[in-house]
Design a protein around this nucleic acid. Structure first.
Length: 230
DNA sequence: CTCTAGATCCACT
DNA sequence: GTGGATCTAGAGG
């Protein structure tokens, strides 16, 4: 592992057995490990359960896509969005509840070489601070995609080594309480006022806030059969 | 740094 | 059919 001060102790499942908005700030500074890559989390967002959080994927109840969030805590909910990106969450609360924490950004502590290759476009890697700066980028850096949906991120049993292909959340190095900031969540169109985005103040790997921008379909796709406007 | 537009799949209504 | 829990490249300051 990279940082000498980092505790390699895995977090127990009970860590996740709380509401997502309590787990979320506590995840800052923790380290998610998957294969050769380790990322220290610097920005997360909490999403609530059915009927209580209009921005959550579980708002309208259980579906095939969000089923993992209704499973036991500590597992990864990985979903596909915008036709090309994956984002990773950690499931909270006991089985049946349906809430999670979106992992929005972090600092790559280990496996930087692997992360650079995964994040390279046209052979050029981005600056190191951008390797996991944003939820889809973080998923790429960690090698998380569709097949990791449902993967258990809690290590039970053997303390030293992780089984091949497993994931784990380590104790890491939580920030001083004063450095934890909270604000509205990014990129959502409802419940914009809920301050369930948490980040480490001043950390360069925290993603820039982006307000939701409704995407318009291409003119060609929407104007079929329409008269010319002028 | 900001702004804009395009890419591209799929879950759900 | 609609609208994303997004990112990148390119143009402009």
């Amino acid at each position: 592992m990279g940082g000498a001060e980092l505790s390699p102790a895995p977090l127990p499942r009970s860590f996740f057995d709380r509401p997502s908005h309590e787990v979320a700030p506590d995840l800052l500074g923790r380290v998610l490990v998957h294969g050769p890559v380790a990322v220290r989390l610097t920005e997360v967002e909490a999403y609530g359960g059915p009927g209580e959080d209009p921005a959550a994927h579980t708002y309208r109840g259980r579906t095939p896509r969000n089923a993992v969030m209704f499973g036991p805590p500590g597992h990864l909910y990985v979903y596909f969005t915008y036709g090309m990106h994956f984002c990773a969450n950690l499931v909270c609360l006991p089985e049946g509840s349906g809430s999670a924490v979106l992992l929005r950004a972090g600092e790559v502590l280990d496996g930087v070489d692997v992360a650079r290759v995964r994040r390279s476009s046209r052979g050029k890697p981005p600056p190191d601070r951008d390797l996991a700066r944003g939820p889809a980028r973080l998923a790429v850096a960690l090698g998380l995609a569709r097949e990791h949906n449902g993967l258990d991120a809690v290590l039970e049993g053997s303390p030293a080594g992780r089984p091949h292909g497993s994931a784990a959340v380590l104790e890491g190095r939580p920030p001083a309480p004063g450095l934890v900031k909270a604000g509205p969540r990014t990129g959502i169109s409802t419940a914009k006022e809920v301050p369930w985005r948490f980040w480490i103040d001043g950390d360069p790997t925290v993603s820039p806030y982006r307000a939701h921008v409704p995407r318009r379909r291409s003119a060609a796709a929407t104007s079929v059969g329409e008269a010319p406007s002028s």
